[in-house]
């Protein structure tokens, strides 16, 4: 049969090939797709539906149209939370260049390379409770390390995580610190993938290490940098844990520092208002999608695929 097909289908072959290629492609993504549908897409659709209802804490709901969205846009608390999420994200993004430099530095040292990698990995394996404890101690207004150091210069530092004016920035610094390890892992793998020949050739041409960094490392690393930036933005806009362990309920800084996901958690799981919580989540999702789409659009200008 195959002989017949191939002889007769000389003209149709590209079409058949395309179909067979398409099926192969679908076969590759199918297992992931099924899990995605059941565990994420369907729940997402049901969240979308919920956002148009007033929902009882344990189920049962009535349709209320766009009420949840209308009250959301009139809710000053939501706008504060959104502003905080954006500030947090902007600051954490500053951590990406730091991670690039550190990854390149680690790659260039001859001795203790493994030691450095393990050290930078440590914050990532540390439990959130411990992270919160340590940083609260560092930031303590009365006897924290930072204010003790500032006092040596005669500066009276604030209560970093209790002062509503500075708390979100203080937490964002911790955000940079705790994302460095992951970023260095991804970027480090990217740097290693760059062919050593390029460096050797450029060394022969007399390029110094700084010039190599800008001429070779950075352009060839751009897909990894793009990846890290996209992931940093997404995870920063979803930030919840750090506010929870470092500022916490009842702190004078809580109201002014809560992020969108923190607000979502408060509404859906503390105040049991699932419809309103769903509306917050959907709006956040749309914002994240817009920002990510923008990044994908911009990548054409600076990301270099080999």
């Amino acid at each position: 049969m195959s002989a017949v097909t191939s002889r007769r289908g000389a003209t149709r072959r590209p079409a058949l090939l395309r179909i067979s290629n398409a099926l192969t492609g679908l076969a590759f993504v199918a297992p992931a797709l099924v899990g995605l549908l059941a565990l994420y897409i369907v729940p997402l659709i049901s969240t979308f539906v919920t956002s148009f209802t007033k929902t009882g804490p344990f189920g049962g709901s009535t349709f209320v149209g766009a009420d949840n969205y209308l009250s959301l846009f009139l809710d000053a608390e939501f706008w504060t939370a959104l502003r905080n999420s954006l500030i947090f994200t902007a600051i954490v993004l500053l951590g990406v260049p730091i991670a690039i430099v550190l990854a390149a530095l680690i790659n260039s040292v001859k001795r203790f390379r493994t030691t450095y990698r393990v050290l930078f990995f440590l914050p990532v394996v540390t439990l959130p409770v411990a992270v919160g404890m340590v940083w609260r101690y560092i930031y303590n207004g009365d006897f924290g390390v930072i204010n003790q150091a500032l006092a040596a210069f005669g500066i009276d530092g604030p209560s970093w995580v209790a002062d509503p004016d500075v708390a979100i920035y203080a937490v964002a610094i911790v955000g940079i610190w705790s994302s460095l390890g992951t970023n260095i892992i991804i970027l480090g793998a990217g740097i290693q993938a760059i062919s050593q020949d390029l460096f050797e050739a450029s060394s022969l041409d007399g390029a110094g290490s700084i010039r190599q960094f800008f001429a070779i490392t950075l352009p060839l690393l751009s897909p990894s940098v793009f990846l890290v930036s996209v992931l940093s933005v997404i995870s920063s806009l979803q930030m919840f844990d750090l506010i929870y362990v470092m500022i916490g309920r009842g702190s004078p800084a809580e109201q002014g520092s809560q992020t969108v996901v923190y607000l979502f958690f408060q509404k859906a799981f503390v105040e049991y208002d699932r419809g309103y919580g769903a509306a917050i989540a959907i709006v956040l999702l749309v914002i994240i999608m817009a920002v990510t789409a923008l990044q994908f659009r911009l990548q054409r200008k600076w990301v270099f695929y080999g």
Partner: peptide, 8 residues
């Protein structure tokens, strides 16, 4: 004050 009580 409240900030000191939030820190400790």
């Amino acid at each position: 004050n409240l900030q000191q009580l939030a820190d400790t």
